[in-house]
Design a protein around this nucleic acid. Structure first.
Lengths: 346, 346
DNA sequence: TTTCGGCACTCAACAAGTCAGGGTGCTAAA
DNA sequence: TTTAGCACCCTGACTTGTTGAGTGCCGAAA
């Protein structure tokens, strides 16, 4: 990519930029004449054809058939997004509306659902938000509730107001009093820590010499260990406006759509993909099959992680055709991530 | 419909039956010659055309254009399903497999998900299962957990092993001891009753003269009232294999599909529709727009309620094109409902 | 009265042909 | 290096003709 960057002079870059922008708005292969009509280049179609030939050799554009205009390749899009794109500041009005809408929701899942919906509504693409990592939440309270002889319901409340339930098997029967003791002990031990810290504390306690621990404490730690371990904690995501994607001609092949929706209901792949985006700092973009998943052949994914108290807890973004208005979508995703983070703080 | 039934002689009925069956398997408009080739009628194409003309006058079939064969109208399908259909007993092997697969799952949601998936897998249509009505579950245990000054987490465990959480606002702060008392009182009062009964009990207690109740009991009932009231108890459903529907040519118009999937993600309409089916006794069928929803223009819905301990708690079914193999689908839906009911009992 | 063969007619689907429009690459001149 | 000119290419839309499946109607036979 760097090579490409060097080999391209200013005019070629400008031309590529125009071409991609043009194709994004029109959806038609763009020819030399059309570009020449744009005053900002001021050269004849013939010259443009020369430049286009170069760009084609570099693999940035290609023509679907002999006598059609050119369209960007994935590589072309990539270069465009990385080096040529001038992002569009979203309208102030829209931002205010977005902020209010996300902020007004109450309850974690409400906030997230609304973020996803707004994202898809504004961009007319599919919006997706990964649920906040449970590990990042902080411990507020734990409680045990005996169900039967050897089964105990563990209730874990985190600071974001979420309640997690889990039924665990115990080796022996516990009395209410015992469970109450464990509750008190654990609540004082873990209060205010993040779940990640809680886990490490548990691990430590379990491995350390148990000299200074009495039986009650050992039991309590054991219970907590089982209750907090998230064996089944499958990540999840909220997807909105998937049907928006059906409106795009370039995806309108029924088998394309089918595969896409299969992936959506599968969720697994998307979750993995989003997980990868959590590592990144800011907005991240996958163009076409860059994601490594065949299904996204003609799709791009624009994501941004969202943070609560300076810790990245999840990702959000949009899925749309490769030919999407990156200049408007990117800042939108970026800002929505910020709003979501803020809304989750309270 | 009764009129139609009387006006049709045996031969016409037989002919209509053949025609519908033929169309269901082939998907092509069926003409007089094709039907005549079927030995079981033993009349010439010309005669068949006469009968067909009658059927067309009755609105049971129609031809898409002058020189094509005939296809059933919705009214034709309806008559076919009501009076002509001979259902196909499903294979023993399939049944066994189905039973095992549904039965082996553990956890209510697992069982339901698997029923939905199997339904869609076997029929190659979309499978749908409404979640069991919460009201039908029976009370096992209630617990209160103080969160803050005026907020209490209510945990309700039902006999099917489900745990329901709800955060309620209280008028004053309760001590742990007070909450413990309330817990004990309520558990002994409600133990083993269905949630519906619990609600009526609560209503009674609240309206009755509170002479013989002490403050603790009043508080407890109040807490329970808030905790059990399901203001937000939006029904839900599990949908599987929706993408199967994309494979059908008759639905493959992109805008059709889009509306359908919009309805799926909306859920609201489908839930209402299913709710209506819960009243019915056995298998119920909506053909085309009989459901009253435009979206299902070219779709049919085959449903059956499922029961736990002789009480109907939910509905399940499949959604597919009007042109579906009713003879195989209907018994399949029927039997799956039975298996699901059984599986939920344990 | 019902059934049937014959016949003219209709229409969709397909194939083949035509044509204009938009585009390209090459070449030679500025 | 840029440009105009030119030959050529390809698609898509339109026309035309043909084929085959299917119909409705009529008059004769049962």
């Amino acid at each position: 990519m760097h090579r490409v960057n060097q080999e391209l002079n200013e005019r070629s870059r400008q031309l590529l930029k125009l071409l991609v922008e043009r194709y994004i708005t029109d959806g038609q292969p763009v020819g030399s004449a059309a570009l020449s009509r744009d005053k900002s280049l001021g050269v004849s179609p013939a010259t443009i054809r020369h430049v286009m030939a170069d760009l084609e050799n570099l693999g940035l554009i290609h023509s679907p058939h002999t006598s059609a205009g050119r369209i960007p390749t994935n590589k072309g899009y990539r270069f465009f997004v990385d080096s040529l794109l001038t992002v569009q500041q979203p309208e102030q009005k829209l931002l205010k509306q977005l902020k209010i809408n996300v902020g007004q929701q109450q309850g974690r899942s409400q906030v997230i659902a609304s973020a996803s919906q707004l994202l898809s509504g504004i961009t007319h693409l599919a919006g997706v938000v990964s649920l906040p990592k449970r590990e990042a939440a902080s411990f507020r309270q734990i409680e045990f509730m005996p169900l039967s002889k050897s089964r105990v319901l563990v209730i874990l409340v985190t600071n974001d107001g979420e309640v997690h339930n889990k039924v665990i098997q115990t080796t022996r029967e516990f009395t209410s009093a015992e469970l109450q003791c464990a509750t008190n002990y654990l609540n004082s031990l873990f209060g205010g820590q993040s779940l990640r810290q809680v886990k490490t504390i548990i691990a430590q306690e379990m491995s350390e010499t148990r000299q200074q621990m009495n039986q009650m404490m050992i039991d309590a730690i054991n219970l907590a260990h089982q209750g907090v371990s998230d064996d089944l904690q499958l990540d999840d995501l909220v997807l909105s406006g998937a049907t928006n994607l059906m409106d795009f001609q370039e995806l309108s092949d029924i088998s394309n759509i089918r595969h896409l929706f299969d992936a959506f209901s599968q969720k697994q792949d998307i979750i993995q993909l989003l997980d990868r985006c959590m590592q990144a700092e800011g907005v991240q973009i996958f163009i076409g099959d860059e994601s490594g998943y065949q299904v996204f052949g003609d799709c791009s994914l624009v994501t941004a992680p969202y943070t609560v108290d300076n810790e990245t807890v999840g990702v959000l973004g949009v899925i749309g055709p490769t030919r999407m208005a990156y200049d408007r979508v990117i800042p939108m995703v970026d800002i929505t991530a910020k709003f979501l983070g803020e809304a989750l703080k309270s």
